[in-house]
Nucleic acid binder design. Structure first.
Lengths: 261, 261
DNA sequence: CGGTGTCTTGATTCTCCTCAACGCGCGTGG
DNA sequence: CCACGCGCGTTGAGGAGAATCAAGACACCG
């Protein structure tokens, strides 16, 4: 019997092994280069094997709503989406953010209807595919099936990362992690990551992170004061990340009490 | 595929306001009966189509560890598991709980290595299948592919439910939701849900819910005082749920400040 | 121009965490 | 046998951090 003694509380970590090189990233807006290529080539393969309905949507447009019957999956070719879940008693919750190459609607497969709203955060191109067609194509093309499984797997991974962040991090780090992740997602996709628009209100960010909008606002102000980020002088929803590594260091906890007051 | 409107955490999405969609009288959990049948028949189908390695494991045994190379998925035929993720700086986090019929390892598909530990919470029977074999079998048998997709989809759904609970609920309700979900999971699988062992320490529960062990302990004491639960006189890890509907009502928020002091 | 939505900042409140002490059951070893 | 350590759980006191409440600034727009 293994001693499963003392899990939760701090412990001398065992094997660092060679775990996933989570953020073993090097210089600059650190990007694993093949990551972006994977996304692009997956999109190409999907487009070549499936009959897709392509369309352009704009900020605020809704791809699907909770409760609608599920019949299609959607692939994001460009733009940004948020997924908003609404529970019976009216609590609203941003449960996910989606970028180019991400799939939307996986969670609806299990019980045949969507369980959240998918809302565009800006102009975006969406490819839609009937799920029954997808199943047929997957049976035919192993590579496609692999892509689909990988996308679902990745979604599970990311959800867990969110959970860990929300459960274990204080507000400052949570917001910093959010910014870091957003920048990383942009960089991976070849978009500029040192300067971008958040596309979410403070309230939405807070909701996503389990915080109030006031707390998010205060944290952003603190991060700016610590020069881990900077605001665009026009819109405070556009931020710069002057030193990505400083932000990464802060997120990783190597720097947790650097200023920030 | 049947339209099965029975999410584990009974969540009447469409109709709000209706005080109780719950099935009337019984003091037992409202179980959608085909839910348990779905699990059983899925297991049967999986067993008939795949060459499985079956084994019995015991509490504390580890099926896989974070960092190990991924090559197999695992299906839980009986027993309970926890998934524990460990971040680089030593934060440990319970990221999931698994029951009969659940699959383990989906999150490892994306990058080829497990990213958490899977640890048995008691004696359990695990079926393991090579992932490459599974892919071949899926291409052959559409029904199998549907089962796999459904399982992944369900995992995504559940992770979101966790996120919503943790982000939006106060400690009392969070713990109550946890108990409710556990009981529901047992009931669906034909196990007795009015009296069971938690199989987790207070520290583990708290970790899973983003709370401290002291808070969990206090909440459980309050819930017991409010008679929403009761402790077994022998072990305070064994609890009874005298009135499942009262607990459900509390979770649903219809009853949030009932006693609890 | 006023109205509205977003954001910031301050003051106050309150929930939950931290720290601490203690009880209990259980296995080990004197 | 009992003492002891140890893991687990409970409970209290005090404090920290985030929520709440409140006020005001700013941009945008019909």
């Amino acid at each position: 019997m293994l001693t499963q003694t003392s899990p939760i509380t701090a412990r001398p970590l065992p094997v660092p092994a060679s775990p996933t090189p989570v953020t073993a990233l090097a210089a600059a807006p650190a990007v694993c280069p093949q990551e972006g290529q994977r996304i692009a080539s997956n999109l190409k393969l999907v487009a070549s094997l499936l009959s897709l309905k392509r369309r352009i949507v704009h900020a605020g447009d809704v791809i699907y709503r909770a409760g609608e019957r599920f019949s299609q999956l959607h692939i994001l070719n460009s733009g940004f989406f948020k997924l908003v879940s609404m529970s019976s008693d009216g609590r609203e919750q941003v449960v996910g953010l989606k970028f180019r190459g991400d799939w939307l609607g996986f969670a609806a497969i299990a019980n045949g209807s969507y369980n959240c709203d998918a809302i565009a955060l800006d102009t975006a191109e969406v490819w839609s595919v009937r799920y029954d067609e997808l199943l047929l194509a997957c049976a035919e093309h192993p590579g496609l099936m692999a892509i689909v499984h990988e996308a679902m797997s990745r979604e599970i991974m990311r959800d867990r990362d969110s959970l860990v962040a929300i459960c274990t991090l204080p507000a400052d780090t949570r917001v910093a992690t959010f910014l870091h992740h957003w920048a990383q997602s942009l960089a991976v996709r070849g978009l500029r990551a040192d300067q971008f628009s958040l596309r979410l209100t403070r309230a939405e960010i807070g909701n996503y992170l389990g915080l109030t909008l006031e707390t998010v606002s205060r944290v952003l102000s603190r991060l700016a004061r610590a020069e881990l980020i900077a605001f665009n002088e026009k819109s405070r929803r556009d931020i710069c990340i002057p030193d990505f590594h400083a932000l990464a260091a802060y997120v990783e906890g190597r720097d947790h009490h650097a200023g920030l007051h």
